[in-house]
Amino acid sequence: MGIEYKKALAIFSENVSVEDAEGLLDWLVKNPKGKINLAACTHIHAANLQVLMVVKPTIAAESKDENLQKWLNWALAN
């Protein structure tokens, strides 16, 4: 559940909730080269999605949840 922040990597697991969005944004602002690992993620709240769409960080690993990844592809296409 939630986001685990490593040095330059944010690891998303299971359901990332709305409360996590503020922290994610802060972290990305402070770590502009920070990468995202979505492998174990099953859902991210829209607030997190918006942060990812605006900041456009590098996705180090795509989600293994096919349905989520399909939607992320649509969202992060541009």
Partner: peptide
């Protein structure tokens, strides 16, 4: 899916 949020990152409101 699109977002019209294009404020500078530092001023962005996550919510």
């Amino acid at each position: 899916i699109t977002t019209s949020n294009n404020a500078p990152l530092a001023e962005m409101d996550a919510y």
